[in-house]
Design a protein around this nucleic acid. Structure first.
Lengths: 242, 242
DNA sequence: GAGTAACGTCAACGGCGTTGGCGTAAGGTG
DNA sequence: CACCTTACGCCAACGCCGTTGACGTTACTC
């Protein structure tokens, strides 16, 4: 059977399935995203995908080498959605902030897919374009190359890491998520001050924040540190700047 | 069959299996960690676990309610190992740095297990103790409560987020990991300066760093920002501090 | 209109997590 | 030491899963 998948642009025939659907890679990716939403993180199976497409499960293997290949295609789609429509303001801090928050938002819009893909390297066009953009923004600040690369890596990995972590919480099965939240709330609200004085003292603040992502805070702290580095770099090369 | 699992401390009989092994929860957890190491992230299966234990696969269900219950037990074990043996120096920045790096190291020591567990909330003793410790360190700096909670959340979530992200890369099946690395190296080494000037200019630096975790950098940047906040707080309450 | 091969379908394989039933032997009790 | 209870290990089975080889139809090319 399919030793090799025919590339999308080389396809000549589009025979409809017995249910009348004309299959494409894009249709499969979109259907997979919808199934992940509807059935949870373990809800994407080849058999169910075939059912949702109105096609035999083995049809998938005419379009992707396997589940892993489909996963990478989904990752590419998420990155594309994250970067779509972005505009530059020319201010490095504003632009980096927006890119970080856009990545985070795009992944959280599809948490089950984000869990599957956040740690993968697609190496495709959208990913590379994003890296080029971030590097360009950082270079425009006048930072030395070594600092540019250091901060770039921290920025990108921080965005992906928080996206994956926050997505994982959202993607838990509802019962598990509710149980986790119950445990968390009970834990922090009821620990006695005698054994856990710090948690007890801050419990109201902790509980109030527990459903908010820490990413905006962590991102701003990273940008604080970058700004300090940029200030140092400018003083080094331009002493009049004071 | 087993509607309910007998708690470990209530067990009365310890009948050896036909291969002479006496099963315990701890033995199962340790065996599961070993299997994850040996067979990769998908290598932990009930049937293989039974084989490794010298017991029938269904024996697992005498000790755990299912695979998910075993997963939480593994999570608990990882947290215990992360915090074991830590000592305080009394210097907030040194202590927070060590805690962050310890969590990261403990998870990366068992990347396949880390992937399964990093996003779960155990609510058990070791997790709570760690939170209490971090809050105590931040409160000792004199920061206002709101800043303590804000920075605490960013610190803890960043440690877990990077641990999960870095673990996921390490835990990829060898072929996928090699493919990802090949893609990455080829991408950054061979992009023409005409279309991607920033990547082309920094390619050697990028490739040199690509196998290193960005977590130490991101952690230090977070601590930079925290230190600036602490300095501001002290100037506000103690103007002589200058 | 004939030939070719792309592609949808079918059936099957070996795995998986999980469960109900059963026998056995370990432990408490006298 | 003998009995009884029942925890616990084992077996067989169920319904899933991803993947593959063979096959026939049908959309294209010429």
């Amino acid at each position: 059977m399919a030793k090799k998948v025919v590339p999308e642009e080389a396809r000549r025939r589009r025979r409809p399935t017995r249910h009348g659907v004309v299959v494409t890679q894009q249709l499969i990716v979109e259907t997979a995203l919808r199934m992940l939403h509807e059935h949870g993180r373990d809800g994407l199976t080849v058999r169910r995908l075939g059912l949702a497409l109105g096609a035999d499960p083995s049809t998938l293997y005419r379009y992707f080498r396997g589940i892993d290949d489909l996963t990478l295609a989904i990752a590419d789609e998420l990155i594309a959605r994250a970067m779509h429509g972005r505009r530059s303001t020319g201010q490095w801090r504003t632009d980096l902030r927006e890119i970080g928050l856009r990545i985070h938002a795009a992944y959280l819009a599809h948490p089950e897919a984000a869990v599957l893909t956040a740690s993968r390297v697609s190496g495709r066009a959208n990913e590379i374009a994003g890296d080029e953009t971030v590097l360009g923004i950082l270079r425009s600040t006048g930072l030395p190359d070594a600092d540019v690369v250091r901060i770039y890596q921290a920025f990108v990995d921080q965005a992906l890491a928080f996206s994956a972590l926050d997505a994982a919480s959202l993607a838990l099965p509802e019962e598990a998520r509710a149980a986790d939240e119950r445990v968390w709330r009970a834990t922090y609200a009821e620990l006695p001050a005698r054994t856990h004085p710090n948690i007890a003292a801050l419990a109201p603040l902790l509980v109030a924040r527990m459903n908010d992502s820490a990413y905006p805070t962590a991102l701003e702290m990273l940008l604080d540190s970058a700004e300090a580095s940029i200030g140092r770099a400018r003083r080094d090369t331009d002493p009049d700047h004071a």
